[in-house]
Structures are given as structure tokens and as C-alpha cells.
Design a protein around this nucleic acid. Structure first.
Lengths: 254, 254
DNA sequence: AAATGTTTTAGTCATCACGACAATAACTTC
DNA sequence: GAAGTTATTGTCGTGATGACTAAAACATTT
């Protein structure tokens, strides 16, 4: 912070109107896995500006709460989710024209969810929907405000966090197979990983995943039933899976 | 952003006074290497609150500029440095009590400098000084506002960026020896790296450092004159040096 | 000039992480 | 029971990396 050290204005009681006033909001990029693809939660705006366009959920920060608390409160209000730890602040946006009505600075948060069902019905939003990020960013739909840029930054952030933290297990349920966990990496990074090597790396890291005795039901096409794991205590520094730019062919190559 | 979709208030022209007003500032954590140790630039506050305490430089955002522009402007005003690319936003802070006068949300930036001389004299600050981060954070000095927390977060950020980006060369001059570059890693990570292995890794990565033909003068204690390099085009994804938590003994061990 | 010390630079070696791939196990459906 | 599909185990070769040794190129001292 904050006030320039030179400025010998009113020493004790400032007049806040002397400084440019901003509205401060928190916006959340809520990511989840659905149909083995990365989805983002969007709401349709019911009022001007950008009426009828898709936007990411958010709301105003209150003076009595911290930014993290505001994000947590808004997340609970709009999606009914009460998860504390998976909220990550990743950027602030304050371009002059980003809100045509007034000066607004928004602080953007990234949330990773697993339960898709609980998301659909928000308390406010006139319409809420999960949209694949590839579709949300491919120019076909235009997001309100600068939300397209915010979503892009969130994707980049989750890509890095996937390598550095234990955020991967937040995408899947409390119990999961390694194929489900691998699908998270593949979808977020857009690569294809060898299932055998993936298992080796994940299991080798001590305390990452803990095997429960049970096995999952095979999928549509049959196959050997997969072992069920639950998330262990998270990482120390760097998760078990590293992004490799050279080999390990890109998803889509044949 | 931003306004809740439910709220059918004034559709076209809002009344900004309906929403809590905040002051928005940008604060900069300016890091540099001096005497082979990581230093942070601090200014002494001349006015209340926290009068006489050390703080990181910063200032108010103007409604007509972006956050990045505000940071760049403040950096130029307070230090005379006009470097564009090395400014990284790393966090926003808006705890209710962080400024006793009013509601202030600050956006924190990280700047890495090499030229120590140009920093010392700011245009405003009554007193500016470089302080080792170990000293600034070890409880001996108390920083104003929540600046201690901000500096801690900045250090953590630069630790990660050192592994993921080409920020290392920003600490050293336009031409440098590998020992100087290695000192950056050692100071920021608090480790000790083998000079031979360091050279091998850095040189192996193509385009990272470019050898100029010249050699540096040996230091105080003599020794073989080191080769002078200049920074190449930066990374693709991930720099040449990786942080290892296990081996490669910690600095200070013997 | 020779000896000693210091730092840089080159080279060797062993270990380990990891990608590629083969083979087996355990289910499904037909 | 046969065929298909997925999970899981195992092997192999390569490349990255830490530890270490040695030579090269300077300064200072004797």
C-alpha cells in the first residue's frame, strides 16, 4: 500500500472522496470435469449491460469481509458449494472500460468442483449452464465484460497448478479410479498419457493416493474393474505428474 | 464481474453510491541482488498511519489506466526504472482492517531489478533503502499495513517463477557470468548448487544464454576468469534449472 | 620464477526418472 | 466359450542429474 509518502494531507482522518472510488467485485471461474472434458460454469445475464450474454458468476465485495471470504460466500450463494480450500485467487482486473457503468476492479478466483449436479441450480442466476471450455473460448460464444480473458487466465493457472499442487484430486470424487484421475490431466493439458506410466508415477509418490480395498464397476465397454483410490494428504512441492513438452504425444495426434 | 444477475435495479445508469466504495492501490515488491543476497526495496513512511515504519512503495490507481499501467507508472515515479516486462501481478489484498482510514484493496506486483544504483533515489520517498529479505521478514523490523505478508507472498512467487520462467536473468546485468546467475538461484531458493552441474544444465538448454566472446575479470581471490554471457530468448516452458527438494544439499549445511 | 590458492570449465560415473512397449489379469457382451 | 475392452504388472533403453575428479587460467606470495 498505499498513500504516497510525500502527500501530507489530513494526517488522521482522511476524506475518502479525495481518492478515486472503485467498486470491487469477486468473480469465480468454476471448472469441472464432465464427459471427460473440461467445463466452465456460466450464467446468463438478465440485466444490462451485456444482457442475455454468458458470464462467469460473481458479486460485490463487502467492506467487512476479506476477498477470500467474499469469494467463498459468493460461491456458496450461487452454487451451494461450501468447499473452503479449493478457492485460489489468480488475478485482478481493472481495465478502465471493462464495465461501462462505473470503475470496477474485480479479483478473480478459480474453483474446482467435482459434483456436477449441485452446480446446476444457483440461487440467483436466471440460467446456469456448464459449457466446455473449448466451446466457451472458441469465439462462437461471446462472454460479457472481459470474462473471456479471465477464463483464459484461469485455464493457464489450472494448468500450472496441476503440475505444482494437488488440485487434480479436486476434480474427481472422494473415491476415484486412476483412469478418472488421468482423464483430468489429459483434459486440462490436452495431452494423452500412458496409463501404465501414469499409474507408476502416481503410486510411487508416497501418500498421494491411498488404495481403498474396493474396485469400481467396469464401464460401458467392459474391461477389468479398476482399483478405487482416495486422495491422500496433498503434495509437498510438485505433484507426481510432470508436464513434458517434448515427447508424450499431444492429444489428437495419431 | 460483477453485478448479480438477479438484481433488477436501474437498468441503464447505475448509481455508484449504491455499492461500497473502495480505494484501489498498486504496491510493488522490488527485488534485487546485492552482495549475493536477495534484497527488497523499502521506503520509510512520512505520514500517519504507520508513520516512520518501513513499507513497500505503491500508489493509487487512476480510473483512466489499467492496473499494469498503474504499476508501471508508480515504478517509474518511485524508482526511475522504465522496464516494462518484468512486472508481474501476483496477488490482491483486501482485508477489512488493513488500512485504518478507509476501505482499500491493493493489487501487488513483483518487480525484479538489476541496477541497484538507480533505485536508491525515489522522487517522493523521504527515505528509501534496500534491505535483505531475511532481515525484513525476521521480525526485527515491522512493516506497515500487511506488507510483511505481501513480501512473503512475493518471495514465494519469485521462487516458483525462477523455476518456470526466465526471470533469473532479470536479476543480473546485461552481461553476466554463470557464477552470478548461479548466485541468483542460490539466494532465492536458499540452496547451494554445484557449479559444474549448473553450467552443464544452463548451457545444454538451447538459446538460454548466449556466449559473448569476452571474459570477466577475476574477483578478489583470483581464479580463472569466467566467460561472459548474455541472456538469450527466454524459455518455452520451464527454465533449465529445476528445484530439487531431496538432494543437492541445503545452503548452510556442511 | 616457482609455489600456492582460487575459480572456472571439462569430464566421468552411477543412479534414477520416464517414455515406449509388451504381456497378463479381470471383467464385459455376444 | 470366444472375442473385446480395460486395468495392471513388468521390462528395456534413454536421458537427466547429482557427486565427484581433474585440468585450465588467473592472482598473490615466496
Amino acid at each position: 500500500m498505499t498513500t504516497k509518502t510525500r502527500d501530507p494531507r489530513v494526517p488522521a482522518g482522511y476524506d475518502p472522496s479525495q481518492f478515486p472510488a472503485f467498486a470491487v467485485t469477486v468473480d469465480m471461474v468454476i471448472l469441472t470435469m464432465s464427459d471427460n472434458r473440461l467445463h466452465v460454469l456460466l450464467v446468463r445475464r438478465g440485466v444490462a449491460p451485456f444482457q442475455g450474454m454468458w458470464a462467469i458468476p460473481g458479486g460485490f465485495k463487502r467492506p467487512t469481509e476479506t476477498l477470500d471470504e467474499a469469494a467463498k460466500r459468493e460461491l456458496a450463494e450461487e452454487t451451494g458449494v461450501d468447499s473452503a480450500s479449493l478457492l485460489t485467487q489468480f488475478g485482478a482486473y481493472g481495465d478502465p472500460g471493462r464495465d461501462p457503468r462505473m470503475n470496477v476492479v474485480t479479483v478473480a478466483y478459480l474453483a474446482v468442483l467435482r459434483d456436477v449436479g449441485a452446480v446446476a441450480a444457483g440461487t440467483d442466476a436466471s440460467e446456469a449452464s456448464l459449457m466446455p471450455v473449448s466451446e466457451a473460448l472458441s469465439g462462437k460464444v461471446r462472454l460479457a465484460f472481459d470474462h473471456a480473458r479471465i477464463v483464459v487466465d484461469a485455464i493457464e493457472r489450472v494448468r500450472v497448478d496441476l503440475e505444482l499442487t494437488g488440485i487434480a484430486t479436486a476434480f474427481v470424487g472422494p473415491t476415484f479410479t486412476l483412469a478418472e484421475l488421468r482423464a483430468v490431466y489429459e483434459a486440462v493439458w490436452g495431452v494423452q498419457l500412458d496409463s501404465a506410466n501414469f499409474r507408476r508415477s502416481v503410486v510411487a509418490e508416497d501418500g498421494w493416493v491411498i488404495p481403498t480395498g474396493r474396485r469400481a464397476r467396469p464401464g460401458e465397454a467392459g474391461g477389468k474393474p479398476a482399483e478405487l483410490f482416495r486422495a491422500g494428504r496433498m503434495w509437498k512441492h510438485g505433484g507426481p505428474i510432470r508436464r513434458s513438452q517434448s515427447s508424450e504425444r499431444r492429444k489428437g495426434d495419431s
